[in-house]
């Protein structure tokens, strides 16, 4: 994994501080050209990995990248699935199994089974899960996706319920079908790490908030530090600035000095911020990416 990964919250009206800012960003980025302009700035600054939700809009980004393989020779995606609100709204509208059947391919036994309310064998549940992953992965066909992650709402729902077998299913499916490594986004790193090890998933890729003020680090900074020191995790740090509560240089320097942190994911809307973050990471986090050949 590269030291610096580019995130996508800013493109979709997600801002943990302000709904007004979120709306302004949603307006600015409703045109895919605007998204591409920022992604181009990041790519030209040497940031090759785009960690993104499987939002419908990302399909348009995928089309652009696919259409210009020379320009984007080193561009890679870390898909994060699923786009949870799509499912949450569908569950409100169609009920639990009705919603699932909405996302199944038109023709198929599972859709029929879900609609009919038939009993599902364990392998059927796995089959449905794999189909859902495939549906989410469709937009990335022909593109590089070396790591595929589960979004935190799903990871943490499954974790809380103790349905940790699903992590194994996900892990194996993205490896077998896509030749990718599985990653897990969470707000509860210590608990998730225990669960993944119990499922036999060794040295997992876990993306979670890691920041100097302990913002949304459930389980507490001490337990986080313990897991990171164990040498049995590859952590991607997000919310490094804690939504702007920590100055960038101080925040990045602190995270860079933690053992176990392999990458930082960050979001930015402008070239200045992108370059600034890249340079801070290059200074404080050894093995920062070289600028790509344009």
């Amino acid at each position: 994994m590269d030291r610096l990964l580019f995130g996508d919250n800013q493109f979709f009206g997600i801002n943990h501080m302000s709904e007004e800012k979120a709306r302004a960003q949603a307006m600015r980025f409703q045109d895919t050209d605007a998204i591409m302009a920022v992604l181009d700035a990041a790519y030209d600054a040497g940031i090759r990995t785009f960690m993104c939700t499987t939002h419908d809009r990302i399909a348009e980004v995928c089309d652009r990248v696919r259409a210009n393989p020379a320009r984007y020779a080193d561009f890679q995606f870390y898909p994060c699935m699923p786009y949870a609100h799509k499912y949450a709204n569908a569950v409100t509208e169609h009920g639990m199994f009705g919603a699932l059947s909405q996302f199944m391919p038109e023709e198929g036994l599972f859709r029929t089974a879900l609609r009919g309310g038939a009993a599902l064998a364990a392998k059927d549940v796995e089959g449905i899960a794999k189909l859902l992953i495939d549906v989410e992965m469709k937009m990335f066909a022909g593109l590089k996706t070396p790591v595929v992650l589960i979004q935190n709402v799903f990871t943490d729902l499954l974790l809380g319920m103790g349905y940790t077998r699903a992590f194994r299913v996900f892990h194996d499916h993205v490896r077998d079908r896509y030749g990718a490594e599985a990653g897990f986004i969470t707000m509860n790193l210590p608990m998730l790490h225990r669960a993944l090890e119990a499922e036999g998933i060794e040295n997992p890729i876990i993306c979670s908030n890691i920041n100097k003020i302990g913002f949304r680090m459930c389980g507490g900074p001490e337990l986080y530090a313990e897991v990171l020191r164990s040498g049995r995790v590859r952590a991607i740090a997000m919310s490094v600035l804690a939504s702007g509560a920590i100055p960038a240089e101080e925040a990045i320097e602190w995270v860079a000095n933690l053992p176990g942190v392999q990458s930082i994911v960050f979001g930015a809307s402008g070239r200045g911020n992108i370059l600034n973050t890249r340079d801070l990471v290059a200074r404080h986090f050894p093995a920062a990416p070289e600028p790509a050949e344009a």
Partner: peptide, 8 residues
């Protein structure tokens, strides 16, 4: 404050 477990 951070809870013991964060979901949504």
């Amino acid at each position: 404050e951070d809870p013991w477990f964060y979901l949504r």
